[in-house]
Amino acid sequence: MVDSSGGVLYPARLPEFHRLPATGAAADLAAWFWIPEWDIAPGCSSRQEIVGYPALNLVVEQSGVTVSGPTTRASHRDLRGRGWAVGALLRPAAVAALVDDPAALVDTVRTLAEPSLQAEVAAAMASGAGHRDRAVETFSRWLVERVGPLDESAHQANALVEVLGGAGAALTPVEAASRLAVSVRTLQRMAHRYVGVSPAAMIRRRRLQEAAQLVREDPGADLAAIAAELGYADHAHLTRDFQAVLGLAPRTYRAGLSG
């Protein structure tokens, strides 16, 4: 199992939640699979607040299958009753086979007519002990068959996301383009075609997610030091990013972690 807190603003408020790694051929198509399961008392709700990764998510629920694009701000969902979801954080290599224009999906959710995927994942989720592993196996198998063989451009698009968001990620689009041995313009076209947002936006979102995670891990950490560690010009720049995307200042976010 992989880390389950990245991108989740208030992990303590989550219902039962798991992230499972993509394996085999599916590892080129999904960064991971995420599965929340909830059973909320009648008349109550559980608000889940997320600052999404700069990527598309393919999600199966009892009601059907949806694909959601990258977001420009924090989002939330109020969970009620009893339910589950099985989502795949898609790698760029899978996007071209599923979506014609990912930029049109920014801040948008679209329903997909994939009844066989929905039925097979739902059956796995209802299958008893080991249901999450079976759901991921089913989802992975469908994804590999649906996408088919990958060409060189798909692999290069995956490399783009690793350079912009992986360990030791590039700090600027120019640095990312240099690492990939392409022009900045080519880098921008790849990001638009396979992700839907600009390389600069991907870098900003990664830094903001890392900042939020550092605040969660050490609520007493100095915010100026976090800003410097992540390459922000100064503490004020970090605060502006928090305000623009999350709608609150870092200190306010830190105070809310104990709520």
Rank of each mutant, 00 (worst) to 15 (best):
P54L: 06
S46R: 15
V174Q: 14
V51P: 04
H131C: 14
A122E: 04
E16Y: 06
V184G: 09
V215S: 04
A74L: 10
V67C: 02
G83Q: 00
Q48K: 12
R47I: 15
E114C: 14
W32Q: 07
V182P: 06
S4H: 15
S5Y: 12
R134D: 02
A157R: 01
A211E: 03
G168T: 00
F33C: 04
L214M: 12
W38S: 10
V121Y: 01
G128M: 15
A96K: 15
R207G: 12
A177H: 03
D107M: 08
D107V: 11
L79W: 06
R185F: 07
A170G: 06
W84E: 03
A97F: 12
R47F: 07
E217M: 11
M1Y: 11
V245H: 00
A181V: 08
R132F: 07
E137H: 00
R77P: 00
E120A: 09
L143V: 02
P250I: 13
E229W: 10
E16A: 12
Y53R: 12
Q243P: 01
A104L: 12
V163H: 02
H237A: 15
R179V: 07
M125G: 02
P149M: 05
V99D: 00
P173F: 02
V197Y: 05
R146N: 01
R134L: 10
H76P: 04
A129V: 09
L257D: 05
A154K: 01
E49V: 15
P70L: 10
Q243G: 06
D151M: 02
A41W: 02
T138W: 00
V95R: 01
V65D: 10
A227M: 03
S75M: 10
T239D: 14
Q209V: 14
W38G: 09
R193H: 13
